[in-house]
Amino acid sequence: MKAQVKWLGEELFMGTSASGHTMILDANAGNLAPSPLEAVLISLGGCSSVDVVSILQKSRQNITGCQVEINGTRVDGVPALFEKIHLHFIITGSDIAAKHVERAVSLSADKYCSVALMLNAKVDITHDFEIITQ
């Protein structure tokens, strides 16, 4: 897997994946685009959500939506690394069993999500969920 990041000027950078997709990053506290650390949170949420949806679908749960709210806390110092990250999954649908959601979220965090597994060495990652019945 390869990628490229190009400086666009000021504090803007454009990342391009090997598949040709682009993403703008703003090193200036995310004023014009996500900051690199905001992109890490988004990547973690995306990676985990892919797993959770896939596992729930394979478990034949009738899900119609999955959203994850991510809250990262950084250490007070330089570099300001993430100390803690909490993921709150909001699963919508009908006839969804909490045990299946708990299992999907745990499997993602502990076994499948590459981003979470990379961050686990340095960051305390927690998660919970709620189910909204439609």
Rank of each mutant, 00 (worst) to 15 (best):
L32D: 11
H88F: 13
I132M: 13
I131E: 10
S114F: 05
S35I: 03
G20L: 13
A39V: 10
V78E: 15
R60F: 02
L81M: 12
A33R: 06
D76L: 12
D110T: 08
I132R: 15
Q134S: 10
T22P: 02
D110E: 15
F89V: 04
S35Y: 00
T126Y: 08
S43V: 08
I63K: 03
G9Q: 03
Q67S: 04
K84D: 13
A18T: 09
N120V: 01
Q134T: 10
H88Q: 13
D110N: 13
I70Y: 00
L44A: 08
L119V: 04
K84E: 15
D95F: 08
R103D: 01
I90N: 11
K111W: 02
T22F: 02
L8C: 06
G9H: 04
I132T: 12
T133V: 13
N71H: 08
R103T: 03
A121Y: 04
A29V: 06
H86Y: 07
Q134H: 12
N62I: 06
R74Y: 02
K6N: 10
H21L: 15
V101F: 06
T133Q: 14
I42T: 10
N71M: 07
A80L: 02
T16G: 07
I42E: 10
E83T: 09
K99L: 13
K99V: 15
I85W: 08
L107P: 01
K2Q: 14
D124N: 14
G65T: 01
N31Q: 15
H88P: 05
P34I: 01
N62S: 09
H100W: 13
K58G: 02
G15N: 03
A109W: 00
G9N: 03
S19R: 14
E11V: 11
S19K: 15
K6S: 07
P34L: 04
S35K: 01
I131K: 11
E83C: 11
I131H: 09
I55A: 03
A18E: 14
M23G: 05
L81Y: 07
A27Q: 05
E10G: 12
G20A: 13
Y112P: 00
N62Y: 04
G72E: 02
I96W: 06
M14E: 15
